[in-house]
Design a protein around this nucleic acid. Sequence first.
RNA 1: GCGCCCAUAGCUCAGUCGGAUAGAGCACCGGUUUCCUAAACCGGGGGUCGCAAGUUCGAGUCUUGCUGGGCGCGCCA
Length: 569
Amino acid sequence: MKRYERAFAELAANASGAPVDEIAALVKIPEPDRGDFSLPCFSLAKRLRKSPADVARDVAAAAQGHPFFASIAAVGPYVNATLDSARVVAEIVPEVRRLGDRFACSEARRGAAVVIDYSSPNIAKPLGFHHLRSTMIGNALARIHRALGYTVVGVNFLGDWGKTFGLLAEAFERWGDAGALEKGGISYLLELYVRASHAAKDEPGFDDAARAMFLRQEEGDPRAIELWTSFREHSLREFERIYRRLGVSFELIEGESTYRDGMEAVIAAIAQKPGTREDQGALVVDMPYAEGEPPMMLKKSDGATLYATRDIAAAIHRFERFHFEKSLYVVGVEQTRHFDQLKRALRAMGHDFADRMVHVSFGRVQGMSTRKGNVVFLEEVLDEARERALAKMREAEADREIDPEAVSEQVGVGGVVFGDLKNLRASDYTFDWEDILNPRGFTGVCVQYAHARCCSILRKGGGAPGEGAADLSALAASEEIALVKGIARIPSAVLDAAEALEPSRLARAVYEAAHAWNRYQQAGNADRSLRVLVDGNRLRLARLALVDATRIALRKGLDLLGVPTPEAM
RNA sequence: GCGCCCAUAGCUCAGUCGGAUAGAGCACCGGUUUCCUAAACCGGGGGUCGCAAGUUCGAGUCUUGCUGGGCGCGCCA
């Protein structure tokens, strides 16, 4: 669809004498009944000192005759263009089928590296539902960037260093039980942590002991490190189980602990910069850029390092290793200031790559804080999603040959993931089971179902026709043309999503395509002549080719979002 | 108190660089299937875009103020 849009912009540019890029920026996608592309002529009119309607009329007149377009017409101050649908169908359907799994992919960014920091949970606590956003937005951005040819380095930057683990280790030394840890895993650690954080408040001396324990860890004391290592390994094992369910993977799993030895160098480097000073025994960097802003702390008064210190070291190390074009941090909006300070501190140290770092922030999920503010575990949500999907499947008459357990897992997980990614990442959203698993609305299930139906029809129809076997000029129904255009918009949405770091752009385009498919598929119920599997070879083969293209496009779109694609439901 | 973000249909949300009659989904009402899986489709009602000014040929979109909400404000991550 991008090349048609570009062609329209070039046409209009030639017709008006304005630069192509300027025109391209003005082109809009109008309401469907106005056409496929639209050019508002207001700013051109100002430049040409004519009325917008006159400009539109002149541009339309000079832009006639291009083979892509069935009509280009001035409507008031707008130039509206409608694609030649036969041509679009004849080009898009074979192209999608030829590309197959490479649909919507390109090599345009080959050689450029992008580092994406996502998920990044703290160890010793189960993954909470609140980890879903970072994990799935990051996963989708990683997949989208890979599709565009980037070398993607997905980093799971574990919160595995800091006073918290001193607290936990101290608690384990006092009350811990190795057998219980082996059996209970991460939930035992959580119990221990809860007890420890109470003790830190109520038991005199405990907090200081925890602090001292973390210092022992920083100094490499064998017992302290042994405890920490065991906490970390138990945590990773359980995280991995959930990542597998979500189809999430990383190129790199490291953590703040990676930088525990590099701290002195970072601190030495930054301590020479203006604005660094000691304050009440702690090392801080003044942030003189904003009024009343607290300084960034590099070192506590007891000598231990902080999150910010380790993040500086990690950022430098990432640039040294990967020479990234972009370095993305998929982290909640509440850390906006932290990343702002991080970048400014790096810049002050002379690291210009700070300008390539982007905090991909996201809003909060409301409506999931049951049980008095306790965190909801991600695994429980995924389990409930599966159960709900299973219950829904059992309601329907199921004489199909599917494995309900496997499919309900895919539908449940897909529903939760799609339900997250369809929202603008910056905005808070309200979690609601009805919005997640409703087969009608703007949901993952709806798109998955559309994909499964494509697969089903292809199975019944004896598979997709070979290349060249289908005469696509047979596809002329309005539902068919709308479907082809819906598919064709997906690659543009992938580019858009990468540029804006906004997976919801893709989620919307994929849903639109699925909806166009449902409409087409449904039209066959009312009018049998619109069915795919009709008598008459020419029409049937052409439609099977269209179904195949639809299947490929939906599958790729869902795949880039990290949503599973069952072939039968 | 200071800083940042947000406010659009009964509910949940889109609306990308300021452009045409502000769009989806849910819910509600009414229809559609002797079905290639109805986990679907179509139609309808429903909006002073929080309030008030301003900039502009044109404002949901930009500016200012106000109201209401969220988040953040040194030894947590």
